[in-house]
Simulated scan of single mutants.
Amino acid sequence: MIDQTEKDRWAGVFTALVTPFRDGEIDLPAFDALVERQIVAGVAGLVPVGTTGEAATLSDAEAVALIERTVRIAAGRALVVAGAGSNDTGKTVAKVRAAEKAGADAVLVVTPYYNKPTQAGLIAHYDAVAAATGRPVMLYSVPGRCGVEIAPATCAELMARRANVFVIKEAGGSVERVTRLRAACGDDLIVHSGDDGLTLPFLALGAVGVTSVVANVAPEAMVALVAAWRRGDRAEALRLHESLADLIAAMFVESNPGPVKAALALAGEIAPDMRLPLVPVAASTRELLAGLLDPRTVTGRAA
C-alpha cells in the first residue's frame, strides 16, 4: 500500500523539460535557467530527457549530464523523474540504472515503440525494468507515439509484482481511461495526465497531477490550475483551464516539442533549434504562438 506521503510527492505539475540546443550542442545555461524558473514557479516535479526533451537524439552521456544537472539544481525542491525508456529492454535497464546513479528520484519509462509488444511483452519488459532499480518506475502509456497502450489489467499485474510500480503517465487522450485504470488497480495507483488539455477532467476523475509540456512556457498558470482544484476552488480551476486552452492546443499543431520550443524562443529563453529529423516550426505556427503569448514576453531574442 502506498502511503499518503508518497502520494503527496506525486501531486501537482511535473514539467516535461525541453532540451535547449544551440549550434548543435546542448545550451546548458538556458537549460539551467529553465529548470530554476520551473522550481520558482512551484512545480512539484521535473522530467528531463523525456519525449519533450528529444531523448531519442541525445547520447547516453548527454542524457546523464542533463539528469545530473536537474538533480543538482533541484536540490530537493522538486521531484526529479528521469526519462529512461527505449524499445529494447536491455538498453532500458541500462538507462534506468544510469538515471538512478545520476540521482534521479524516479524514472519515466515509455512503452517500447516500433516493436509493438503484446501485453505479455509489456509485463515482461516493465517487470525486468522495475527489478533493476529501487526507484519508482512511472509507466508511460502513449499509444499515439508508440502504437501500443498499457491495458488496465497489465498495470494491475505490474503493481502486484513490483512495489516500485504505482504511478502512470496516461497520454492516450481518453478521460475514460482514468476510471478503467483505477477500477483495475485501486486507490494505490497514482495517475498523471499526459495531455495538458485533459488535466482538469483527469483531476476530477481521480488523477493527482499532470506531466506537462505547456508548463515550460506557463508554469505559474498550470501550478495554479492544479492547486485550485486541490483546494476545492472548482470555478478558479475551470477559469484557468479555459484561459490556457488555446495555448495548450497550439503546443501540438506540429510535433512536440517544436511549438513549445518556438514559444520559449519568442520569449527569449532558448533558441528554437531542434535535432533532425525534427526541424523548427513553420512561420505560420510561430505567428500563431506569438498571438497567444503575453506581448510583454515576446522578444524574439533567441530566434
Rank of each mutant, 00 (worst) to 15 (best):
T285Q: 01
A153R: 10
A55I: 05
D27T: 07
R234H: 15
P117N: 05
M138V: 14
I248Y: 01
L266S: 10
G258C: 10
G291K: 06
G42F: 04
V281R: 08
L139H: 05
V129M: 00
P143Q: 10
S86W: 11
T111C: 14
C146W: 04
I67M: 02
V18P: 04
E6N: 02
V279N: 11
V107T: 03
R97T: 00
S243C: 12
V109A: 07
G173T: 06
K95E: 13
A98N: 02
V142L: 08
G291F: 12
D127M: 06
V64Y: 00
T57F: 03
D233K: 10
H241K: 08
L292H: 04
R301C: 03
P143K: 07
D233I: 11
L225W: 05
V165L: 09
T19R: 00
A265P: 03
L205D: 14
G258T: 10
G232L: 06
R72L: 08
Y113G: 03
T70D: 04
A237I: 14
L266Q: 15
F202I: 08
T111D: 06
S174Y: 01
P112V: 04
I168P: 05
R77G: 01
L198G: 01
K116L: 13
G232Y: 07
R69C: 14
T299L: 14
S243N: 13
T133Q: 05
A78T: 07
V223E: 07
V18F: 11
P295K: 03
Y126M: 00
E287R: 13
D195G: 13
P112L: 04
S174C: 00
E54I: 05
K261D: 05
T70P: 10
C155K: 04
E36P: 01
R296S: 15
P295A: 08
F252N: 07
D233H: 10
V49Q: 01
V253Q: 14
L225T: 04
V64M: 00
V93G: 02
E157R: 15
S193V: 08
Q4D: 07
V223F: 09
K116M: 08
D294G: 02
T133W: 07
R97Y: 00
P152R: 13
D188C: 08
D187V: 01
V210M: 11
V279K: 06
A290P: 03
L266C: 15
A249D: 14
L108V: 05
L189W: 12
A124M: 03
A271T: 15
R161T: 15
A218K: 01
T5P: 00
D88N: 11
R180D: 14
M222T: 12
A262P: 00
K101L: 02
R72H: 13
V96W: 01
W229R: 13
D23N: 14
S255G: 11
A106D: 11
V109H: 11
E68Q: 14
D273I: 06
